[in-house]
Design a protein around this nucleic acid. Structure first.
Lengths: 266, 266
DNA sequence: TAGTGGTCTAGACCACGTT
DNA sequence: ACGTGGTCTAGACCACTAT
C-alpha cells in the first residue's frame, strides 16, 4: 500500500459529516483533490492517535460504515487497508475491524535514510569534511551498478550532536545521475537535490554490522582506542530499481543504535 | 497489502490460459481456493524471477490485461498492487507498469525473527543453554507490558554455524501467554508453538547496537577479549498489538551482520 | 490528443468465526 | 444461523504523461 494523494475534482455536495453511537465523526470533502479513501484514512489515524478510538475498539462493519459515510464499500476498504498495512488496525472475519491493542505505535522511521540525506547540507549538526569527484572503486562501482573507474561524487561528513561527534558518513553518488554542485549541496541538501532532479527514492538495502575502531577512527569520533563501532552500508534505489546512492558509515556504538520495526508479511 | 490466500470455490470453466505478443502465459484456475489476484501475482512474480519478464519490461495496460485473462480490472490491479508493494513492479501514469530495473531483488528477510524463533527447538545449529521460569526483571516486564515479577519463560541458546558459535540468544515469553513445555519446545520450536496456541506474529520492534564483549561473552563466543559485538533487542507483537516475546541477543560481529531492506513510504 | 494508471460506484457471492 | 471480512465484477470518470 501507501500511495500518494493527488487527484479528484468534482463539485457535488458540500462536506459530509457522519457519526453514530458515540463513534467519531468524519468529514469528507468531495471537492478536495485528496482521494476520499485517503481523507478517511487520515481521519481514522488521527482519531486513533488522539485516543478517540481506543485500542480494541471496533470500527463497525464495512457495509454500515460505507452507508454512514456515503461511500462505497471498496472505498472504505481501501482506507481501512492502508491503516492495516500501517499496523494500526486489525481485521478479523466474523468479528470486525479493531484498533490494534496499543503498543507498536510509531512505524519504522526509515532509520537514518532521510536523516542522512536531508542533512547533507551545511546543517549545524553536520560538518562536511570533503566533497570531491573521484573514480569509483570496485566496492562503490558494484554497489551503484556502474563501471569501475566511473566518476562519482564522494561526500564525507562528520555528524555531531550536542557538540559531540556521533558518526562519520561517507556517501557516493554517480556523477551521471546527479551533478552535485558543492555550493547548492551545502544549502539545499542531497535529498532535495535528488527530488528536484526527478529522482524519487523508492527503497534501500542496508547492512548493519560492528567492528573495533582503528586508531584514526577512534580519534575522529572521540572514542577510546579499539572501541566498538556500528557500521552501516546502504544502497538506495529510485523507483525504477536503479542504484542512486551508496553510503558506508560508522557510528559511535556508545551513543547510537538503529531502531526499526518489522511487519510480518502474509 | 499482503494478505493470505484461502477462499474461493466455484466450479465454472476449466483453467484459462492467456498469452499475447510474446508475453508470458498465465494459467488461472477458478476452481482453486487460491484467490485469482493471488494466482496472478504469483505467476507474475515467477515470470520476473525466471527472467521471462526482464527489468524495464512493460506489462501492458490493465484493461487489456484484464480482458486477456478474463478478469475484471480491479482484480488485475490487486495482483499488480501486491507486487508493487513488494518492490517488484513500478507504475507510472501515462507510461504503464514495468518490472523494476533489476537490483533490490529479495525483499527483507525479516532479519532473524523467524530464524531465531523457528530454531528454538533442538536444531543441530542451536544449543539450548537453559530454559526456566523466572520472575520478570524491570527490563523484561517493560518490554512485554506485564507486571514486574510476573512469571516468564527464559530461554537461553547458543547459535552455531559450521561448529562455530555465532550468537547468544536470550528470549523471554510471558507464562500467561504461552506455557512452554521444555520437551515440546525442543522438538517443535517456539514459533510453531505460538501458532498452535493461536498467536500470530504481526510485527516486531528491534534495536541494533554494538558494544565490546565482556570476558565471559568473549569466552562463550570464542572471540578475543574486548571484541566488538553486535547487540539486538527485539520485542515481537501479535496481531492485536500485544507483546508476545522479548529477546536480548548478542552476535559475533566478525561473523554476522544484519541485512535488510527499507521501502520508502508515500 | 491519445493512452495509462488512479479513483470510485453498486452491487454480488463466498468463507470464516462467533453464537 | 448469523455476521463479518475476503473476493470479484463491469462498468465510470478523472489526472498525469508522452507525442
Amino acid at each position: 500500500m501507501t500511495r500518494v494523494p493527488v487527484n479528484r475534482s468534482s463539485a457535488y455536495s458540500p462536506p459530509v459529516t457522519a457519526s453514530s453511537a458515540g463513534a467519531p465523526a468524519f468529514a469528507l470533502d468531495r471537492s478536495s483533490p485528496v482521494p476520499l479513501y485517503y481523507q478517511l484514512a487520515q481521519q481514522l489515524e488521527a482519531a486513533i492517535e488522539h485516543g478517540e478510538l481506543r485500542p480494541g475498539a471496533l470500527l463497525g462493519n464495512e457495509i454500515e460504515l460505507a452507508g454512514r459515510l456515503g461511500l462505497s464499500r471498496p472505498t472504505v476498504r481501501q482506507a481501512i487497508q492502508s491503516l492495516v498495512d500501517k499496523g494500526l488496525l486489525v481485521r478479523r472475519r466474523g468479528v470486525g475491524t479493531q484498533v490494534v491493542h496499543s503498543q507498536v505505535k510509531r512505524p519504522l522511521e526509515l532509520s537514518s535514510l532521510y536523516d542522512d540525506l536531508e542533512a547533507a547540507g551545511q546543517k549545524p549538526a553536520t560538518r562536511v569534511v570533503s566533497n570531491a569527484v573521484e573514480q569509483a572503486s570496485a566496492e562503490v562501482a558494484a554497489a551503484l551498478g556502474i563501471a569501475e573507474g566511473s566518476e562519482v561524487h564522494h561526500l564525507e561528513r562528520l555528524r555531531l550532536s550536542h557538540g559531540q561527534p556521533m558518526a562519520f558518513l561517507s556517501n557516493y553518488v554517480a556523477v551521471s545521475r546527479l551533478d552535485l554542485d558543492t555550493g547548492r549541496l551545502e544549502s539545499t541538501g542531497l535529498y532535495r537535490m535528488m527530488r528536484s532532479a526527478g529522482i524519487t527514492l523508492h527503497s534501500a538495502r542496508q547492512t548493519v554490522g560492528a567492528r573495533s575502531a582503528t586508531p584514526e577512527e577512534a580519534r575522529l569520533l572521540d572514542e577510546p582506542g579499539g572501541a566498538a563501532l556500528l557500521t552501516m552500508q546502504r544502497t538506495a534505489y529510485d523507483d525504477t530499481g536503479r542504484a542512486v546512492e551508496y553510503g558506508a558509515h560508522i557510528y559511535r556504538a556508545s551513543r547510537y543504535a538503529f531502531d526499526f520495526q518489522l511487519l510480518v508479511r502474509a
